[in-house]
Structure formats: structure tokens, C-alpha cells
């Protein structure tokens, strides 16, 4: 099962390596990891996507919580949540494919962020499924380079 964990931790040197060291040392798997400062500059938020049986996820959550620099761990995939990932794709765009690439990007509400005579660099944002779809469609045209941010996620606010 895929789980998306949101981890608040102190924005201190070494804090991130405590988290990644925990995963490598205990043989847990990290599918993606994204980290940046929160509104409070002393605190970072780390979004981590991992897979494992419930017992493993329980261990991961507890072990993360045990780290002294960690403030809070939430398995946000337990409830309703929104997730987004951004990807930059440099795709081949030669005279006969330039128009088609633009149409595809438009369908996915992407943006062209860099242009060269033979390629476009495009920016697409969305949940993992959308990123996968756009990659699958562009792949036959020719993807030269791809950079992904990894997933960030936020729990939905209660509706009542």
C-alpha cells in the first residue's frame, strides 16, 4: 500500500539526514521525498511517499516520531487529501511535432517554460496519475530530460 506521510521537523542541520538515515538503516523504502520551510522558518515540512504493509507503516511512523528533531508525523493518506507534483520535461519538438506537443501540453494545462529550435521544456503540475499520463503520451515523441519534484500533499479541511 502506498502511504503519504507529512512530517514536521525542526529546520536544523542534520535533521533531514536523521530521517533518510532512519529509512536506509531500517530498510524502509522511500518513493519520493520533498522538503521545504514552513511559515515558521524554524520548522520544515517533509512529504514522504512510501510503500509497505500496515505493520511497516506503523513502525515507520513511530520511528519517525521517535527522532528528537521531529515535531509531528501524519499519515495523510489515511484521510482525504490533495497531492501535487511538478515535473519539468524537455521534449523533442521538431518542425513536424511542435504543434502536437503544444496541443498535448495544453490538454494537460501545462506551460512551455523554455524553447529551443529542437525542443520545448514544459512544466506540468498535478497528482501522480496525471504526471504519469503526460509522460506516457510524450514518451513516443521523445523525452530528452525529466525532473520531478516528488509529491507534496495536504489533508483536506473538514467540510463541516
Amino acid at each position: 500500500m502506498k502511504h503519504t506521510l507529512s512530517v514536521l521537523l525542526l529546520n536544523k542541520p542534520g535533521a533531514l539526514s536523521r530521517v533518510t538515515g532512519l529509512f536506509s538503516g531500517r530498510g524502509f523504502n522511500i518513493e519520493s521525498l520533498s522538503v521545504a520551510e514552513t511559515l515558521d522558518p524554524k520548522v520544515s515540512c517533509l512529504t514522504l511517499v512510501t510503500r509497505g504493509q500496515e505493520t511497516i507503516i506503523e513502525q515507520i511512523t513511530k520511528q519517525l516520531h521517535k527522532l528528537i528533531d521531529v515535531i509531528k508525523v501524519t499519515d495523510i493518506s489515511e484521510g482525504e487529501f490533495v497531492e501535487r507534483e511538478m515535473v519539468l520535461i524537455r521534449v523533442k519538438a521538431e518542425s513536424h511535432t511542435r504543434a502536437e506537443v503544444l496541443r498535448i501540453i495544453d490538454i494537460f494545462r501545462g506551460k512551455v517554460v523554455d524553447v529551443s529550435p529542437t525542443s520545448y521544456a514544459v512544466e506540468i503540475t498535478g497528482p501522480e496519475s496525471k504526471i504519469k499520463a503526460v509522460i506516457d503520451i510524450l514518451r513516443p515523441i521523445g523525452i530528452k530530460e525529466i525532473i520531478r519534484t516528488g509529491t507534496i500533499a495536504m489533508a483536506r479541511a473538514p467540510k463541516k
Binding site: P13, G14, S17, R18, G21, G25, I68
Partner: peptide
């Protein structure tokens, strides 16, 4: 040594 002992201490510090 902070890096080396990270997995074998409860916590560690470098005083900067």
C-alpha cells in the same frame, strides 16, 4: 562524528 554516530546515539549535537 555526528554523522558517524547518528544511527547509534539517541541524539547528537554539533555545537556551532
Amino acid at each position: 562524528i555526528v554523522g558517524i554516530t547518528r544511527p547509534c546515539t539517541k541524539h547528537n549535537y554539533l555545537v556551532n
